[in-house]
Structures are given as C-alpha cells and as structure tokens.
Amino acid sequence: MQDQNKFNYIIQQADNCLILGQRLAELCGHGPVLEQDIATTNISLDLIGQARLFYQYAAELQEEGKTEDDLAYLRDAWDFKNVLLVEQPNGDFGKTIFRQFLYDTFSCYFYEELMKSSDERLASIAAKSHKETLYHMKWSGDWVIRLGDGTEESHNRIQQSVNELWSYKDEIISVNAVDQEAEKAGYGVSLELIKEKRNEKIKAVLEEATLTTPEGDYAHKGGKEGTHSEHLGFILADLQFLQRAYPGNEW
C-alpha cells in the first residue's frame, strides 16, 4: 500500500458511517411512528451509501484486490476505528435523536472542510455527503428542540440522554496521529476548526430546546484506536453474520 495513513484516515470516517448506519437500520419497522421510522432508515441509507464510497476508495488504496465488502464484513472489532458515540445503543427516541445530533454536528462541518481536501476523490465524496448531512442535522436538531421544549416527560427523557451521551461527544473531534498526518499532508481537515463551529451549534440548539448543558468535558476515548465498548461486538455479529457463516455468498 502506497499511503497507509490515507487508508487509515478514510477507514475512520467509513466506520463511523457504517456503524451508525447499522444502528439506525435496527429501527427499521420499530420506529416510534411511521414517519420517523422512515426518517431513521432513510438516514441509515445515506450513511451506508457514504460508507460505501469511502470503503471503495480505501479498497483501491489497499491494492490487495479486495473490495468494499471485505472491509465491511471481514474485519474484526479492533480493526474498526469508529468512535464510541456511534456504537451506543438506540435507547429511547430521545437517545437516538441526541446521538444523531452529536454525530450530525460533526459530520456536517467535517464534510464542509473535507470538500477542500487536496485529494480530489475525498473532496468529491465530501461534497456529495455534505448535502445529505445538512438535511440530517436539520432533522435531528429540530427533534432535539421539539422534545426538549415539549412535554415534561419528553423534556426529562431527552435531558437524561444529553447527560448520558455528553461524555461521548468529543472523541470524534479529538486529534490522533492519523488525523495529524492527514492534515499535514493536505488531504485531511483541521478538527480544531470543526470543534468551534460544532460547539456553537450544539449550544444554540440546547438553549432553544430549554435543555441544560451538562458540566464537565470528560471524553470517553478508544474507538479511534480500535478499543471499543462491548456494543461493537454485538453490532458486528449482526452485520457480518452472513459473510462469516457463508463466505463469498452473494445476494
């Protein structure tokens, strides 16, 4: 492989997309109401579509004759570099929404920066994905406000999810060696830049939603280095079962 760091950089975001896409797909047929069932699965579809574009590119860089499917179905938990946030369980609708909002406020600004990447392929994937995530952020942000500024029950429940997920907020904008090298080489983005915009957006939406911003900025980390919570193993067991049990099987 010519550029191991670029491969690793792409895999980080591809895995975020795939794992969150898989989490949302779990809601297919189980959404709280039909419209939101459709919304979560549509977002899932966009995320899996984005994951495919990244995996296809990563597989080409790998130069081992592998495909996007090998990367999605045949790597083990420690090979996955997604952040811990996206593997958190769906919980109640408030938790699904707030997890989504924390992710969307990252991906939206991340793609906005990645559109300027020196790597044309990454820039074009980012431009395509950015349009989709803008819409996702509108949806999840609207719901944070609706639930927060809704009934006492909905307010209390989403506040609880805000408190629970708060320590999973910042891993996604924490800089590791891969990010550093990618930014230096010009194809990666500055996570510092994203952090500011993202925090502003989160603050504005929480305020409008009449929700309390939790104190403290402790961040659970490990996902970006392949150290995951136990949730990921269960997700992969679902996601990869068919290819593991029936290698090479096609739909």
Binding site: E35, Q36, I38, A39, N42, I43, L45, D46, Y135, K138, W139, D142
Partner: peptide, 13 residues
C-alpha cells in the same frame, strides 16, 4: 409539511 422524510430518500411528505 408532514414529514421531512418520505417514501424515498429524495422526497418528503
């Protein structure tokens, strides 16, 4: 507007 997401990714209801 009833729902931001519709029967396919490109439509709303």
């Amino acid at each position: 507007l009833l729902s931001q997401f519709g029967s396919t990714a490109c439509k709303s209801l």
